[in-house]
């Protein structure tokens, strides 16, 4: 019995390591200065899928929606052991909120067909919403198990998994197909040297077109060559995945951003307390007198 797994991954700006030059003098985020990384919990989801591959010999397909540059995370996934990689890229997808994103990704799953298990990271660090996973599950009309820490077993038509709940854990059993959202629960394997040798030349059609933009004929021949070697990262636009134009991108997004403000911590009028017995004694006295303490 072989299972088909689909892992959705995302390339995100590294918001957790914002350095000085990533902020403009006005205090806004300079997105261009942020390195793009493999969303951390998506790596956990991929690792979980690859462990299932080690255990059960499942097929692992990874897919992402994003800019042409997002082919990079697909390449990294191939170098970790994924069997197949798909990029969905289209200007029409820009401005998507979680509803439009989940619709688009559900179209990918439907196009592929015959998927037993979908895995996603719980949330992406650029939005922290954790909404896309459950919304894909709803769009595919399949059960979801969120915050999964461990797959206990994958059997014909059934998955048993342990997931985190407030103050503890639950073991849930669900029929397949199902969707899991995965939390930081494993140590993602590094890219394998052997696979890196193989996949370092893997490119998407968009990347090839960019590299040979003055020579379309060369682009075509490189594409054919990579495809023959299994090194072409499959690329799809919105039409190719069968997406309804009214439900994708900005048009397909019910939430609109009214206003964006950068966070500027206001300088308060902090009272300077000297770190001496006297200074601290006075502070304690003040806090006790105004009933903050005691």
């Amino acid at each position: 019995m072989s299972f088909n797994l689909l892992v959705f991954i995302k390339q995100v700006p590294d918001t957790q390591n914002i350095s000085g030059d990533a902020m403009t003098p006005e205090g806004t985020v300079n997105r261009a200065a942020l390195p793009a990384i493999f969303n951390p919990e998506d790596l956990n989801a991929l690792e979980m899928a690859l462990q299932l591959k080690d255990r059960y010999g499942v097929n692992v397909t990874v897919a992402t929606m994003g800019m042409p540059a997002a082919a990079e995370v697909l390449r990294q996934a191939l170098c970790r052991g994924a069997d197949r990689a798909l990029l969905v890229t289209d200007r029409a997808l820009a401005g998507a909120d979680t509803l439009a994103t989940s619709y688009t990704l559900s179209c990918v799953a439907k196009m592929l067909g015959n998927i037993d298990l979908v895995l996603c990271g719980r949330q992406a660090i650029d939005g922290d919403t954790a909404q896309v996973g459950p919304q894909i599950a709803e769009k595919l009309n399949i059960p979801q198990i969120c915050y999964v820490e461990e797959v206990i077993s994958l059997e014909k038509g059934k998955i048993t998994a342990r997931r985190s709940i407030e103050g503890g854990y639950e073991i849930l059993e669900s029929p397949l197909p199902a969707l899991l959202t995965v939390i930081d629960c494993n140590e993602p394997r590094p890219e394998s040297v052997k696979l890196m040798m193989k996949f370092k030349r893997a490119r998407s059609a968009g990347e090839i077109a960019m590299a040979y933009k003055n020579d379309p004929a060369a682009a075509e021949s490189v594409k054919a060559e990579l495809a023959a070697k299994g090194l072409l990262i499959e690329e799809f636009n919105a039409a190719a995945i069968g997406a309804d134009p009214a439900r994708i991108g900005f048009t397909g997004s019910p939430t609109k951003v009214k206003q964006v403000q950068s966070v500027v911590l206001t300088a308060g009028d902090a009272k300077e307390v000297s770190p001496t017995a006297e200074g601290i004694g006075d502070l304690m006295h003040e806090l006790i007198s105004d009933h903050t303490l005691g």
Binding site: T28, V29, D126, G127, T255, Q259, V260, Q261, S262, V263
Partner: peptide, 10 residues
């Protein structure tokens, strides 16, 4: 949003 660096009204 964006790791707490901006505040968005949606």
């Amino acid at each position: 949003a964006f790791g707490g660096n901006i505040i968005a009204t949606i």
